[in-house]
Structure formats: structure tokens, C-alpha cells
Design a protein around this nucleic acid. Sequence first.
RNA 1: UACCCCGUGGUGUAAUGGUAGCACAACUGGUUUUGGUCCAGUUAGUCUAGGUUCGAGUCCUGGCGGGGUAGCCA
Length: 678
Amino acid sequence: MDFIRAIINEHMAKGTYQQRVHTRFPPEPNGYLHIGHAKAICIDFGMALEYGGKCNLRMDDTNPCKEDTEYVDAIIEDVHWLGFDWDDRFYYASDYFDQMYEYAEEMINQGKAYVDDLTADEIREYRGTLTEPGKESPCRNRSIAENLALFRRMRAGEFPDGSRTLRAKIDMASPNLNMRDPVMYRVLHAEHHRTGDKWCIYPMYDWAHGLEDSLEGITHSLCSLEFENHRPLYDWFLIQLGVHKPQQIEFSRLNLTYTVMSKRKLLRLVKEGFVSGWDDPRMPTLCGLRRRGYTPESLRNFVAKVGITKFASTTDVVLLEHCLREHLNQIAPRAMAVLDPLKVVITNYPEGQVEYLEAINNPEDPNAGTRQIPFGRELYIEREDFMENPPAKFHRLSPGSEVRLRWGYFLTCTEAVKDAAGNVVELRCTYDPATKGGNAPDGRKVKGTIHWVSATHAKDAEIRLYDRLFVKENPEECEEGQDFTANLNPDSLTMLKGCKLEPSLAEAPAGTTYQFERLGYFCPDNRDSKPGHLVFNRTVQLRDTWAKIAQKEAPKPAPKAPAAEAPVEGVALIGIDDFAKVELKTAKVLAAEVVPEADRLLKLQVEIGSETRQIVAGVAQFYTPEEIVGKTIVVVANLEPAVIRGVQSNGMLLAAKKKRNLRLITVDGDIPSGASIG
RNA sequence: UACCCCGUGGUGUAAUGGUAGCACAACUGGUUUUGGUCCAGUUAGUCUAGGUUCGAGUCCUGGCGGGGUAGCCA
């Protein structure tokens, strides 16, 4: 039970809003919706659905300089795609401009609003600071009649942009800066995308937003945390006017690792050409995710899993990918495709013969049925499914070994044909005709099953492999003088040409995501894929246990017999008195390597003065060995030796950790290693 | 340095004041014609110091830490 439902439940119990739940999703049409909005949409529409209420879609278009109808259409499409509907309750804030103007005059008549002649700079100056109160504008005590006349002349267009504002008369000393006589209207001779040139004054968000909600009879105005400080102001306006007052409830925005979420930054990625557009499949925009092959169901499920809190958190993108795979595994039709083709000739298969093999379309869904796939003498298999000198646990093709061709026959490699440079260019294999369908009558087993495509029937395709857009969990974290674009992942897009697809994929409809067996989920690109020129996007990889095993096996462990295994039990507690005995010294990192079998540990050789020591530290998530070598760091030098994951460690590094990020304490300048600290 | 909000495993989150649970991730093992899926298991947590209480993750006070706020943006 989250705090929003708790509040709604209370209202329901007390009848605060006559058992009504009416929410709204109020985007400003100045950009494309992204997955952060998806959270808000799911909460806004979801709460209404859950309580049998309604949710409006409203364009918050109070700033004509920034908004455009292009965005309106995209927003409508995206919210619908996500799976929500608003019947006929589609509104614009600009629909209420007349009413808002009436309310403004009422505020003036109540003596609670005044026309101010201060410039923008002066207003800022008069507002005071976070720690000092503001001071009142000289215009603050104009008569009601004068304010009314002036305000009408503002509306009539008698004043230039920025020359005058209408301000609420509240409290220039309020600790809440939003209450220091906020601006309600500004003069803006700008054409509005819907009202044209009807208006030359436009309401400010703080004045308009509460009114919009009130006018629509909204009961629960759900929004993000940064509006928390504004709530007293919205309430104040509505109370002065004596109109319906919704309950605003704030929740935290969605943040995701390895991406940026602000409209401004996404716009930069588009404008500066780091991505191909708002719907680039690497973008966290809804149109980008759609093009990538994400399903609305997986997004909704993800939002539900993330939950609702007031804590500013960052969700690991792997949770999103989990939700995606979870759904795709249920619904995605299976197909076979070869990304990096290696020709296989089955020497004992009759030349020119073609047969069709039955394949199950989706083992998770019996209703998905089966299909026939062509098989012949020449096939393509994945280049990485063959190794001439395979390591242990490699269950794929190698000379003399037998594998199963998915839905086909057992296959044995007899020869690897090479070019002059020694590259394998073709495999000669034999098959066992008795194993059709993949089972041997004699009951013999094969460990591996690989995918394949008939060479004569294969369809060529371009396949785009996508990876995270940024190399850092938090792209904002960068060196002085750089910005988030410095953390863009240069390998976020890999284009493969000449990939081979099973023929059924030629008719793959846009909007359907397939599982290419053993590889991942892929969908036709909704922009570039055409009948003669197939283009598929990789939505997400399959979980790859083999990659993990291979990675573990790869680095040859250099076993170092721990000289003196001093038993270390648990963590020694250091009292404040003992802390003074801790010997902190600078140390220069001479060498570093990841500890085999422990991908979080780094084994360092450090120089402390004339002495060289080995220290094991759990910093591999934060530093690569290359990064750390050469740095001068701070170590605790007088610790008992410890054995960490079988490797001796003679000391400890000093580091600072903030949220997810850990930084080692480093020493600049000419301080030699071995120097004492403090 | 003012005001507001927030601190639960690595991450995201549950828990009328009453056994700290779930999911992801990681790690084991099992099943498997996808090294997918599925199944079983392991590791791991209430920021801190006091107070109230029979009993505190929950209530109170202080500290520490994080986020927000000084647009005529939304």
C-alpha cells in the first residue's frame, strides 16, 4: 500500500470527494513523452481505473513560445499506445484562458492581486534569497481600481512584453519562495498554437494549473515531487476563489541507470545528432522504446514494480529489461536468424534436395502453433557457434563434435575450410539422417543445439544491435568541464549487414517483436524496414549464461600462494581510540588486475615508500585496472594481512562512497608514496 | 546558510506499534531440442544517538546523509 492509495482510501472512507476519483495527466506539449512520463501516466490513469473513476488527458499549453501541435499528436499516440484512454475528456489549458482571466479580475477585486511595473530583474532582486526575506514592490499597494484598469490595458495589448505583470499579494517574507507574491500573468505578444493572437497576456503555470484541475473537477492531482513546495500556493489561490479544491499528492520521478531523462538533455541528443531522432531506438522516449520493440504491457508492469514513493531513487535498467523479457518470452514468436553467418555444407546430404521441418512457434504458448522451415545441403550457422579449439564446457560445433541443429538433425563437423589467411570460411559436415527432428533413435545425447538458416532460402537483412546509450550508470557524473555527452557509449549502435533470416521473417509485420532463438528479441524497424530491404532492431538480448561462463574461464588465474594465511574473522571493530592508531599512507598503484572468480575485486600491487604490497579491494565496479594504475591513493597500512577470496591482501584502500558511486581518495601533486597522512 | 520532503539488503520496494517480506541483480544446484524459459536454494537490509512503550523500521527529539526550492518555464 503506497501513500497515494492510502490518502485516496481515506477520502473514500470519509466521502471527501463524494467517493469520486478523478485524475488527469497534464503534459506540456513541448517535447516527446519518455518512460518517466510513462510512470506518471500509469499512476494517473491507473488510479482512476482502480477506483472506478476517470482520468483526463490535458495539454498544459500556457506558454505559446515553447509549445507546438506536433507534440500534441505524438503525446496522444503515445498515451494510447501505452494502453490508456480518456473517452472525450481531452482538454487544453488554453480552453480555460477566458475563465482564468475572470478569476484574475476577481482576485484583483478581492485586493489579492496587483499589477506590478517591476522588471524581471527587479522582481528577482525583490524576491530575496533562500535565507533572506524579500521586500515589497512599490506597486504592491495600488488601488483595486487602478489594478483593474492596468490589468485590462495589459490584456488590450497596450504594454510591451515584460513591462508589467499581475502578481498575487501574499507574503514577501514567506519562507516558501513560491508564496512571495508570485507572478500570475505576463505580457507576451506571441501567437498561441490554438488561440492564435487572441491573447497577449498568458497565465503562469502556478496560477493556471490549480485552476485547470479545479475546473475539471479533479479530485486527486498526482504530480512529481518538485511541485511539493507549490502546493500551498495552489491551495491558496483556490481557497481565495472559493472553488473546488483537489488534493495534490506528489511522488518521486522515475530515474533509470544508463540514461538521461530530462527533456532538455534528450533534446540535445537529438539536436546535436548523437541519436537519429526522438524515436531513435536508444532513446528512453515512448516512441523510441516502441521502435525498439518494447511492449506497452512490459512498460506498465515495470512501472508497477518500481512502485510509488517520495524517495528520489534510481531504478536499475536491468529491471526494465527483465520486465521486457518476461513479457516477450510469453508472446514473442520464435524464429531463426544468423547474425554472423558461417557457411556449412552437409556433404552427405543429397545435392539439390529441400525438405521442410516443423518448428514450434512459441514453446510458452501452445496456441502459437508450428511452422515449416526449409532445410537443405547448405546452411548458415552463427560464426561464434564454431570453434576449432574449443575450451571446456563449449557445447557447440567443433571438429569431430556433434551438435543438434534446432528442429533438424544431428550434425558433425568433419573439416574447417580456411582461406589463405587462416580464417575459417566454410565448414564441411555430415548429418545423421536418423535424427530428423532432433532425436536419435539410439538414445544418444548431444549437449548443444544451435540455430541455422538454409542458405538457399535465407533472406538477407540489416540488423541493428543496440546497447546502453551511456557507459556510466549516472551519465551526469563526469570530469570538470565536460557534460553528460562525454559519457555517451560509442558502441551503443552496431549495424550488421548480410544477416540471414529464415524466410518466414520476410513478412514480419511492424510492431511484432520476435525471438531470434538463442540471440534475443528483434523487431522490424518501423521506419526503415521494407519488403526488399529488411531491417531488424535488437530489442534486448536473451540472458546469456554462456557469456558469463566464458568470461570466467577466460582470464587465466595466476595463483599466488598466500604466504602467511592470517585468519581474519569477521570485521575487526575499531573504537575511536584505536582509530588514532590507524596508519594512513599514500601509495602508488603499480599494477592492477581483476581477481579471477570475483568480478568485484581488484588485486593491486602498490608501492608504499620503498615497499611493494599486494592489496585486494572491492572496487572493480568503479575502476578498471587501467584507470587505477599510476594513481596515488591512500591506504591503511597497518592492518593484519587478510585473505580475500583466496588472495592475500595487506592493507585497505580509503574511498568515499556516495549513492552508487565510489571514488578512491587520491593524492595530487608531488607527494611521494609512503607519506603519512594526518 | 532558510524552508519543504525523504533515508529498509547491491537496486527498486513491502510491513493497523507485534516473527523485517517481495522483486530484480549476484551466486549454487535441478529440468530443458533455445547456454532461453521454468524449478529449488544461498548471500544480503531498517543512517545514527537518545526518548516513549511490555514491545519501535513505524511515534517523539537531536545529529548525519540525500533531494527540492531564489523563471515573466512547466
